[in-house]
Design a protein around this nucleic acid. Structure first.
Lengths: 149, 149
DNA sequence: TTGAATGCAAATCGTTTGCATCTCA
DNA sequence: TGAGATGCAAACGATTTGCATTCAA
């Protein structure tokens, strides 16, 4: 058990993996550490480059990165973020928030979702005639940042 | 000028292309007709298969489909839809709505966005410290439909 | 007439798969 | 010990590019 920046209790990476039914392997630990250190969405290549940079880490194959991203996503530890880029981006699935994305330079600003929006989305989900379980949503804003405008 | 299903005035495809600075070519007309006929998001391969089926249409190369989807999207006639699938999906950009997507069978249900949500999103945009122009947003719900649940 | 659109072949990019080997639990 | 994880090479699917030719305006 340790503390994060804001002083909240957080579980260790080991426990996080165990809790979600994932074996603890060096690759998995390294990848999760990169997500925790870099607080922005990352794609497979981003992760792979970070792994190469860190000389304390034995080289991890790019394919292993893809496989781990897949298993971490399926187990719910990380989630996919829609940034309208060519590659698939992921981030930790521990803090519900959304993004404003600059379509010119790629800058990302986070925003916390308003509780009112969540309620409205729930209402929409209830009204649906064809769906029973609506579990997730994507909500991202796109535009140009102050520098690019 | 012609009428659509709901009796609203709609401009012809020719005018739509002209208005958005696109040359009128057989490929472009055929592709737009497919979007208008099928009222669901379509990817390049979907379009290409539809073109092959229709024997009134001279075969159009798959690459031409990609190039046209790109130019139609850049000119604002069609827009990209985030369905969390591998290929890029597009639909006509004339009727602002969002989607509920079944992550199991791919079923898509449309929903009109609540005006309250739009207001809340505008507030979020105004609060942003790093962005000046926020023009678009993605908002899709994901879950399982009644059949798959 | 001219810049844009097309077709074809080939290349590219992100991602996945098969298979032998290794490792965590 | 056995299921899952890894590395390597190869395959794959979606999309893009180069280039010569054709076409819309």
């Amino acid at each position: 058990m340790c503390m994060n920046d804001s002083g909240h209790k957080t579980i260790s990476i080991n426990d996080l993996l165990k809790k979600n039914g994932q074996k603890i392997t060096p690759a998995r630990l390294s990848i999760l550490n990169i997500f925790i250190k870099n607080k922005i969405p990352l794609c497979a290549l981003d992760i792979y480059k970070e792994l190469l940079k860190d000389k304390k880490i034995n080289n991890i194959n790019e394919v292993t990165v893809y496989r781990n991203l897949s298993s971490l996503e399926k187990s719910g530890i990380i989630k996919i973020v829609n940034l309208r880029r060519d590659a698939v981006y992921f981030e930790m699935n521990n803090d519900h928030h959304h993004h404003i994305v600059c379509t010119n330079c790629g800058l990302i600003e986070d925003f916390k979702e308003n509780k009112n929006i969540e309620k409205l989305l729930e209402q929409i989900a209830e009204k649906s005639t064809k769906f029973k379980n609506i579990k997730e949503h994507s909500l991202e804003l796109f535009g140009t940042c102050k520098v690019c405008s």
